[in-house]
């Protein structure tokens, strides 16, 4: 289960095998949605997805060998980025729509019923278009998602909210191995070396947008929590509180 020295093809197989399922919302509210019904559906979905995200993280090679403290730090730091990259990947073939669940597909105009949400929807749709334009491959997606989890909390400054990792070297080794797998996959595309380097950069530059959207989304979710009109589930609340926004 050690990741150091794992061949790139095996890393790709393990990452693809770790993918969580696409969920169903089930408790669907009737249209037109209101701020309360929309946020109730989205936060309920996020809470359910978080449970699957934790199971996914535990399948990443090397993750369960990290200390519990480091596992918590990485997940608390990156959870909304991981949810967002998954949402964009699911939505890649549906321009103008975000596929939150098999039975919960929303377009931009529907997001306007929640104050401040259209701005975040627009950013998610724009970044999804970028994924589409780049013709992001499943192998590249699974690498990027794992990189998001390992990168976001790894080199964070020590602030009042985020503590340093116990073993940042172990996280760096995982990150390097997954980066190698991504580079290896791109190298098999038949492109020139320059085109390969460019694609590596193009894909990794997407992560800056994902971090930005997560920060915006976290602020938005915090504002929803403060309004106290939508009850948030335990796990989602814990993950939000880890960011202790002001």
């Amino acid at each position: 289960s050690s990741i150091a020295g794992m061949p790139p093809d095996q890393v790709l197989l393990v990452l693809q095998g770790a993918e969580p399922p696409i969920l169903c919302a089930r408790q669907k509210m009737s249209r037109p949605y209101t701020e309360v019904t929309m946020m109730a559906m989205l936060t309920s979905m996020a809470d359910k997805e978080l449970v699957h995200m934790i199971a996914w993280a535990k399948k990443l090679p090397g993750f369960v060998q990290l200390s519990l403290h480091d596992q918590v730090q990485l997940l608390e730091s990156a959870w909304l980025e991981v949810l967002m990259i998954g949402l964009m990947w699911r939505s890649i073939h549906c321009p103008g729509k975000l596929i939150f669940a098999q039975d919960l597909i929303l377009d931009r105009d529907e997001s306007t019923c929640v104050e401040g949400m259209a701005e975040i929807f627009d950013m998610l749709l724009a970044t999804t278009s970028r994924f589409r334009l780049l013709k992001l491959k499943p192998e590249e997606f699974v690498c990027l998602k794992a990189i998001v989890l390992l990168n976001s909390g790894a080199f964070a400054f020590c602030t009042s909210t985020m503590e340093p990792l116990h073993d940042s070297t172990a996280v760096q080794i995982m990150l390097d191995t997954i980066t190698d797998a991504l580079v290896h996959y791109i190298s098999q595309s038949g492109c020139t070396v320059q085109q390969q380097s460019r694609r590596q950069a193009q894909l990794l530059l997407l992560l800056t947008h994902i971090r930005h959207m997560s920060n915006k989304g976290m602020e938005h979710l915090y504002s929803i929590k403060c309004k106290n009109t939508v009850p948030l589930y335990d796990l989602l609340l814990e993950m939000l509180d880890a960011h202790r926004l002001h």
Partner: peptide, 13 residues
Amino acid sequence: HTKLLQLLTTKPE
């Protein structure tokens, strides 16, 4: 982070 710890420490089925 009680729930998170609980999910991290339970064995997969």
